[in-house]
Nucleic acid binder design. Structure first.
Lengths: 189, 189
DNA sequence: GATAGAAGTAAGACCGGTCTGTCTCGGTTG
DNA sequence: CAACCGAGACAGACCGGTCTTACTTCTATC
């Protein structure tokens, strides 16, 4: 067995969901791509909604792990921010990039509590990543971290529609500028 | 006749598309809500894709007109920015707000050239609005206008998922800060 | 201004296709 | 033998889009 079956299904479903959209991809497409029987899929995921949530959860884990690596690496907060945006730029500079998977999923399944919940958790944790970085800069500005995540999400949204990855670099420059003024004008605690 | 039939259809379709999603709303729902026969709909809009594009176009016209009013009003650039974000906050502070209709549409129909084209045009024009405001501030910083639209889109994206309209106010504060530093550090032309 | 015809409309049957989800069957593997 | 699996038929609903039928409304011509 090359791979556990649930992962096999999630891999196929995830690629299709992100590339073509969730509603646009039927169960039949997924089981064909995953080389799996329909009953097998429904044994592991009781409904398509569950499968979508699991796909988002897997993506969430992956993205957050990648961001936490940046935090755990002992690099200066300013460079961490730079790195995060430049990693995003790399991803955005690819024809198959379609924007934030969680925003896409909520756009299609905004009425599914299961889906929205994972997406919200993800956004909250991304904000917390920026918050952690800013607190390492010993300028406890929670405001600045909110600004950074705003720029991060804005870059994702603009690239999703306009497909021009340079927006991410512009966001990076603005983020660094926000960081600098936040640190420069920091309040003594 | 209370209203031209195409507008009647567009009104019903627009409300349903935005509220529940484009793929989630079938033609039957639209014609029922618009009190119109199916053949009538297809006489005015040759396909659902055309109808979606027309819905986006109508929304585009409305939003851009509202933004241009801000420009044409003789108010200071800084106040114009403030006003734009506070108007967005008003809209976001409503249970039926679901985020940027164009981002939602692209998420669902990213492969439709007709749909993507309207969405891209919209995003470009929004950026141009900020650009026009910044050039009135006689600091020709195109960079700052890009930052402003980044914050604008970020606020839309975050509210779309998190449903917390206060993100728009945070974006406003950041935008004003960006504006101030851009004007303060402007280059002599 | 009356009238014939063209055009627009509502209502809904209908078509072929696709959707999610269930079920059966027969094979394979531990 | 028991649990899982692939393949696929099947159900019931819904999809976008076409077409028919009967009715209304507008328009052009006399």
């Amino acid at each position: 067995m090359r791979e556990a079956i649930p992962d096999q299904i999630l891999t196929a479903a995830g690629a299709l969901f992100y590339r073509e959209g969730i509603r646009a991809v039927g169960i039949d497409r997924i089981i064909e791509e995953a080389n799996v029987a329909k009953a097998t899929l429904y044994r592991h995921f009781p409904s398509k909604d569950h499968l979508v949530a699991a796909y988002l959860q897997a993506r969430h884990d992956r993205v957050i792990r990648s961001l936490e690596e940046v935090i755990e690496a002992e690099i200066a907060p300013r460079d961490a921010i730079k790195l995060i945006f430049e990693r995003l730029h790399e991803k955005a500079d690819s024809p198959e990039f379609r924007g934030c998977a969680f925003a896409l999923a909520v756009a299609e399944h905004g009425d599914s509590e299961r889906v929205v919940s994972v997406a919200r958790t993800h956004k909250t944790m991304v904000r917390n990543i920026f918050s952690a970085i800013m607190s390492k800069a010993d300028s406890g500005s929670q405001q600045a971290s909110a600004h950074l995540s705003l720029l991060y999400e804005g870059a994702l949204a603009i690239v999703a529609v306009g497909r021009d990855p340079s927006a991410v670099l512009i966001a990076r420059d603005c983020a660094l500028s926000v960081f600098d003024t936040a640190v420069f004008t920091k309040q003594p605690s």
